[in-house]
Simulated assay, not measured.
Amino acid sequence: MTALRPLLITAGEPAGIGPDLVIDLVCQPERMVSLPPFAVVGDPALFRDRARLLGVKLEIIEVVPGQSITPAPGVLPVRSVPLSAPVVAGQLDRRNAGYVLACLDEGIRACLAGEASAIVTAPLHKGVIIDAGYPRFTGHTEYLRDACGVDDVVMMLATENLRVALVTTHMPLSDVPAAVTADKITSTLRILHRDLVRYFGVSAPRIGVCGLNPHAGEGGHLGREDDDIIAPALTLLREEGMVLSGPLPADTAFTPHHLRDSDAMVAMYHDQGLPVLKYAGFGRAANITLGLPIIRTSVDHGTALDLAGSGRAERGSLDVAIDQALVMARAATQGK
């Protein structure tokens, strides 16, 4: 099996807990010995300042594309991208919005160029990026889709014994019904099915699909989308050989009866599926973008500005995101 190329981690919003998490990561000797070569994308000065604030002794090594550093406790390899303005932990600054996107761009570029095996992203702050002059920015998922030049991607969150994928992602609830189209449903399920096989070793995925309306439309009495759009799309995909259950009433779709028979569950919109996932495993889950030509995972939480620099940020989700990225990267390597 070919050795993995370095893993890249973007630290996200510099005033948030992303820098704290990567600093805590490299200060754990037992964790470092389990990792392949990796580097954090960001400004070395940011990590020096945050380490001082946290009272942590940290050695920073600046690395360049193609350079590989064996992980060592207390050593943070950094692929340098300069900040636009000084950072105060917990205080957003619009001037650094471009820096956040530049770090993400470098991670994407490195993966597309074959310099990195995967990118793991710490949380960014959508609002400050939009306010800084990027009004069309809606989040990592959509930004990665556009940067990689693909038509569609799937947001899937995963924790122990539960995977939840979304048909629609970051949009107002009032826009969801019009966005739940047959094409969007079939695209989501084809991507999910393919990547469960390709990256997660599920040879014959069993996928549960939630309806849009309460009680999956109650035979049309609570909305027609379930009968007129979702059900025909599932029938088409079953004819292609997919094993699908649904459309299921969302209020019972996540009960043990259905989950026992599903390798993943598909929700029609963000707050239909993710509250269940986060209740089951918040802090122990990873956000995974399927359908990209690169591997990308992320933490399951936000920037937690109130915890930045306090030493109280919990690293669990970053560990899960790294582990999921490594599972996927190893599967991709074995497939070559």
Results as ranks from 00 to 15, higher is better:
M1I: 14
T2L: 12
R5S: 15
G18W: 04
D20C: 11
Q28D: 12
V41F: 00
D43Y: 03
A45Q: 05
A51S: 02
L54W: 06
G55Y: 03
G74E: 00
G74Y: 06
V78K: 01
S80A: 13
P82T: 11
L83A: 04
V87N: 06
A89E: 09
Q91M: 10
Q91I: 12
L92G: 07
A110G: 11
E115K: 12
A116M: 13
T121H: 11
G127H: 15
A132V: 07
Y134T: 13
F137D: 12
G139Y: 11
H140E: 07
Y143E: 14
R145G: 12
M155D: 01
M155S: 01
T159P: 00
T159S: 07
N161I: 01
L166R: 02
V167S: 00
L173H: 02
V176Y: 06
P177E: 13
P177R: 06
A179M: 11
S187G: 12
I191Q: 05
L192P: 05
H193K: 06
R194L: 10
R206E: 00
L212W: 04
L212H: 04
N213R: 01
A216S: 05
E218F: 02
D228S: 15
I229N: 12
A231F: 13
A231S: 14
L237C: 10
L237H: 14
R238G: 09
D251T: 12
R260W: 01
A267W: 03
M268A: 10
A286Q: 03
A286D: 08
P293V: 14
D300Q: 13
D300S: 08
A304S: 11
L305P: 02
L307G: 03
A308S: 15
R312V: 09
G316Q: 09
L318A: 13
D319W: 10
Q324S: 07
K336L: 14
